[in-house]
């Protein structure tokens, strides 16, 4: 089947790839571009591990057709840190021991980044709501919620 050319912005860089028609965005990111930060937990839209931002809004990259992101901007965890400086959310997750196996972490970071970008000082309930599409099997969620709130206090929107 002929491939389709696709260009988009990924964390400030321009990406141009050929994709199979019908390919999911996560496949293109992981296999086509080599950005392994979005994780595939379920491939059916129920775990949130594959969350990326498309034009600033959280999307499940396993359910997103790659061709729909033509010309748009994708943010993944790979673009969070500025050089050696971790994003305030990454720092808060690290300091709060908010990851064990880490499989959910990338999706949690992107879902919470989307929240803090539009709501810099969220309430606890807003944080819970923002990550309620993201499953975590290890932490019991509390360290994650606490980390997001603490990142917000430290000016987490960046």
């Amino acid at each position: 089947m002929p491939k389709t050319p696709l260009t988009f912005t990924l964390n400030d860089g321009e990406v141009a790839v050929f994709v199979d028609p019908g390919a999911s965005l996560i496949d293109v990111l992981r296999r086509g571009v080599g950005d392994l930060t979005p994780k595939q937990g379920c491939a059916q839209g129920t775990c949130g591990a594959c969350t990326v931002l498309i034009d600033g809004k959280p999307h499940l990259s396993c359910l997103t057709l790659a061709e729909t992101v033509e010309g748009r901007r994708i943010d993944t965890t790979a673009g969070l840190a500025g050089g050696p400086n971790l994003h305030p959310l990454q720092k808060a997750f690290m300091e709060g021991f908010s990851a064990q196996c880490g499989f959910c972490t990338s999706g949690m970071l992107m879902a919470s980044k989307a929240l803090l970008d539009r709501t810099p000082n969220p309430t606890r309930d807003e944080v819970i709501e923002a990550i309620s599409g993201n499953l975590c099997r290890c932490t019991g969620y509390e360290p994650i919620v606490d980390a997001i709130l603490s990142a917000a206090q430290q000016g987490g929107a960046r």
């Binding site: 021991f97 064990q100 290890c138 932490t139 019991g140 969620y141 509390e142 360290p143």
Partner: peptide, 8 residues
């Protein structure tokens, strides 16, 4: 962290 997650 293990105790909190494990209790969950």
């Amino acid at each position: 962290q293990q105790l909190i997650g494990g209790a969950w």
